[in-house]
Design a binder for these strands. Structure first.
Lengths: 335, 335
DNA sequence: GTCAGTAGGTCGGTTCCTGTCCTACATCGA
DNA sequence: TCGATGTAGGACAGGAACCGACCTACTGAC
């Protein structure tokens, strides 16, 4: 079949190197002429293959106007999936939805032998500070994304803010990420009204097979924003930073006002104190917090904890096995 | 052309929903019979398409044994690229190389109109603490990855540890990630010897077009490990954590020994104090540091900084514009 | 200049592909 | 229980596409 050969050819050409026509002909078990024709076919499909002339020339796939089908080996597929899983955990502004869509697409076709690798590797992510239960399970996210794409009614269990658990039957309309949290905008059939669900409080998602009958609001983004800002606890911080304004503006989101060449004023808001403290600490500069008082108290608590942790002269507890040959310190880094 | 239709069909089937044959026939502008035959073709290619029988049945692509070609729209491609870029910045143990390979593959064919989006979005990543210049430029990484895959000799400028800059001509053999740093294992033609280069010190990578003539060591991993452990500064930390051993083991890499049900002993090593401190703080529990003394001092300095930052009653500097209507705090989260 | 590579035209035989029939079977809902 | 609506798949004939073999033209490196 010629389609299979075309895919194989694409797969070969996607490894970033030059392929002489003879080698391609051999690998695809066809004549050189046919390889040329296949290359022409790929070009017709919109995937530009450039050929460098002369001795030791060859074919190479370059960027065109359309994305060619990506042909991945197992490891690459796992790597991409892991990347998308962490992207779902720490959504990047502007492509949150596309990340989840891509993850759902990939999950749908990912061979089962690779799934456990993705799961185990995806779990070993860099932990960012947050409250318990903050972490979104990517599987839940993709299940909901599939339902949204499929326009399919779903059932799930929901843990409300007051701790009450309930079973819901909803028409899922859209997944949105706000800050570091995911929300599902849906029509709740039991309540017969639109609701905004926090995805990390959703569990046991089950497809019903029924089609969606309700419609989403004409401006989902505005709806979500209104719901969120009226309901989510938010801490607005005002901090003086001993660092140039331009450096700060690059590093953190928020409103940065330069005070002088070496200090600036930052206004930022977040939904947890942990997160605010984390962003401030990782800036690595001196700073003073003016508001809110909760953040001042939080930082003072953290300082106390660190002081306790670095109490001088604490001996290692008995029973700890002796360390082998200690690794060298302060040696020069490799060239 | 039938290959084009097959790709389109694959593309449709990859969106996670069910497709009735009639709709597919319409979209592909062929008869129902041909759709059935195309589905059969896909199955022959190893991509399992399941069909649910009965009224409102349809076709769906499911996970098989081989990865089908991924057909992505622009946004999904950007999302994947951004995910891989951050994965290159924060390599996940075990798939570092595959991540870069996938990124190189994607970069090669990514339409130019999407590149700037990837660049700008990829820059806005969560900053993790580290020394200056720690961050690897993903573009450099993919350039080197391409050279490795292409077995092509490259030129670059290198900033040695002592600050001396030099031009190098090398045969790149392999990219390896150790901890959070990338290294290039290569044969340096000027020195005529194997060298290990830190990728963040490499600049201005340029392909020469010449083929590689040297061979990599029979056991690259061992070679790199030997080079690294003999040369890189490493801090070995010994810390008592007031958290259950199993929780800790999940959250941080290192050797965890339970002391009792609620505390454990952690041995971990890293190349910067910032990184060690960061991992300990984000655990969120009480802890005591036994070794090394540098870490104790580092934490004490951090505690002092936080104490200064949370000095009571610091008024906001004059001239700061009054904040508009303050956002609500402590209101209930949305249902 | 020579050599080794790509680019591309032509031609005949063969293969494959397509649409139109047809029947068989599964599933849901009335 | 029956009918509607879906998939599954065989048979067939006309047409389109594909393939290899041969040829010439062009390009770049040694």
């Amino acid at each position: 079949m010629t389609s299979l050969r075309l895919l194989n050819l694409l797969s070969l050409l996607q490894t970033p190197r030059e392929w002489p026509g003879g080698e391609l002909a051999e690998r695809l078990a066809v004549s050189r002429r046919t390889v040329r024709r296949d290359v022409e076919r790929l070009r017709d499909l919109g995937y530009p293959v450039v050929a460098t002339m002369g001795a030791d020339g060859g074919y190479r796939l370059v960027a065109g106007t359309a994305m060619p089908p990506l042909l991945l080996d197992d490891e690459e597929a796992v790597a991409i999936a892991v990347g998308l899983v962490t992207a779902a955990r720490h959504p990047v502004q502007g492509i949150e939805e596309a990340s989840v869509r891509a993850l759902a697409k990939l999950e749908q076709v990912l061979p089962s032998r690779l799934r456990h690798r993705v799961a185990s590797l995806g779990a070993a992510t860099v932990p960012l500070p947050g409250v318990e239960g903050f972490d979104v399970d990517p599987g839940r996210l993709t299940a909901l994304a599939m339902a949204v794409a499929n326009r399919e009614r779903v059932r799930f269990r929901y843990l409300a803010a007051d701790g009450a658990e309930s079973a819901r039957l909803v028409d899922p309309h859209r997944l949105v990420a706000a800050g570091r949290r995911w929300y599902l905008l849906a029509h709740d059939h039991d309540r017969d009204d639109r609701r905004l669900f926090r995805v990390d409080r959703i569990d046991d998602v089950r497809a019903t097979g029924a089609r969606i009958t309700t419609t989403e609001p004409e401006d989902p983004a505005a709806y979500v924003a209104a719901k969120l800002y009226s309901g989510t606890p938010t801490y607005g911080a005002v901090v003086t930073l001993h660092a140039p304004a331009e450096d700060v503006a690059r590093a953190v989101p928020g409103e940065v006002t330069p005070l002088d060449g070496r200090t600036c004023l930052l206004r930022a808001s977040a939904d947890t104190l942990d997160w605010l403290a984390f962003r401030l600490i990782t800036l690595g500069c001196e700073f003073e917090v003016h508001e809110p008082p909760e953040l001042v108290a939080h930082l003072r608590g953290l300082a106390a904890r660190l002081t306790r942790a670095s109490a001088p002269g604490t001996p290692a507890p008995a029973g700890s096995p002796p360390r082998g040959t200690p690794r060298s310190r302060r040696a020069g880094p490799p060239r």
